[in-house]
């Protein structure tokens, strides 16, 4: 009898405990829901979904669809940031991989899978370059990846000869725009990538090792962790993710736009990781929350576009809301709020 009551209490307590334990994790999710709610009030029909030709159609699907490239890039970025690094070159790698995809599709008879492999390979090469600069030559990540950020777009322009190269491929078009089981195919690709990464990071010691390298390189080395190889692999992964995103973005517009593809996407990816609670000082990797961060950013973009706001206010409104989300998430603000709350309670008592 007593035992039964005890299990009952633990059962009742556990969600509340969970809430306390994961209070930080809840902040981005609550922010996302709030933004969705407010948008739904401002723009009626924003949450409305209907089926067209066997797939879902509506702004919510647009958010998933448009958020995919950023989500994939942010996944790699979260891992790199976890090692106390940063990868500014992802936007340029997107341009390179898109250019490779387009030029190979147009100029060669390569089958699609080979084109995709080549594009992913170009991303891995870029990642290898960044990784060697950071882990072998010990160049600061922000400087090391800045080199490719600037040069990479030039490389992409050389590949496309400065033109927008348009191509036609049914498979690539499917990756960019078609649906499978009511959802866009690219969303399934991103989902698979996220799940695989989470499993590798959390079901093996790899995630822990990466975080330990980010938190303290020397201590990690002393306990026998191969820090250099781990850092190198983080940049390889980021390059791979960026290349995947580049293929999707090129497939989306059926062309490679070397000047604009993935422009400033690195900033959104970094922001998503930070919204998830990652510290730029390394040591923490939150993969699922990073995706929530991406959804916050993309929801804002889509919401602003559907709201009819004059174009010149886009960036200011977006920045103000992001700032508000970051403020809410900061421990200091939360401390202040809870103090205020307690005082009020005292008065009312």
């Amino acid at each position: 009898m007593l035992e039964a009551t005890q299990t009952m209490t633990t059962k009742i307590m556990s969600p509340i405990n969970l809430l306390h334990k994961h209070q930080k994790a809840l902040a981005p999710i609550i922010s996302l829901l709030l933004i969705l709610l407010v948008t739904a009030i401002i723009t009626p029909g924003f949450l409305h979904l209907r089926m067209i030709d066997g797939h879902l159609y509506g702004s919510l699907i647009d958010i998933l669809h448009r958020g995919t490239p950023t989500a994939i890039v942010a996944l790699g970025m979260a891992v790199v940031i976890g090692t106390r690094g940063i990868d500014l070159s992802v936007g340029a790698v997107i341009a390179i991989s898109g250019a490779v995809t387009a030029v190979l599709t147009v100029n060669t008879d390569f089958p699609v899978w080979l084109v995709i492999l080549c594009a992913l390979g170009s991303g891995l090469l870029c990642g290898l370059w960044n990784g060697i600069l950071v882990s072998v030559f010990n160049i600061q990540p922000i400087v090391a990846t800045l080199i490719l950020m600037v040069a990479g777009r030039g490389i992409a322009q050389m590949i496309t000869e400065g033109q927008i190269v348009t191509f036609h491929s049914d498979t690539l078009n499917a990756i960019g725009n078609e649906f499978f089981l009511a959802f866009p195919i690219r969303v399934w690709i991103a989902l698979a990538l996220v799940l695989i990464t989470i499993v590798i990071m959390r079901k093996t010691a790899l995630g822990l090792f990466l975080e330990s390298v980010g938190a303290n390189v020397r201590a990690s080395r002393l306990v026998g962790i191969e820090a250099r190889l781990l850092v190198l692999s983080a940049y390889l992964f980021s390059g791979f993710c960026a290349a995947m995103s580049g293929i999707i973005l090129a497939a989306d517009i059926r062309g490679a736009d070397a000047n604009n593809a993935g422009l400033w996407l690195e900033l959104d990816a970094i922001l998503a990781a930070v919204l998830a609670g990652a510290s730029l000082a390394g040591g923490r990797i939150y993969l699922a929350l990073t995706i929530v961060g991406v959804l916050i950013i993309q929801t804002l973009t889509t919401a602003i576009l559907t709201s009819g706001l004059p174009a010149q206010y886009n960036l200011v409104v977006k920045a103000a809301i992001i700032l508000a989300v970051l403020l809410v998430q900061s421990p200091k603000t939360r401390q202040l709020l809870s103090q205020l709350f307690r005082k009020n309670m005292d008065y009312s008592a």
């Binding site: 509506g58 647009d62 989306d252 736009d257 604009n260 593809a261 576009l305 709201s307 009819g308």
Partner: peptide, 13 residues
Amino acid sequence: AGGKEVMESFLKA
């Protein structure tokens, strides 16, 4: 890419 995304949102809105 910008033209496509914005047109999508116009059509939805």
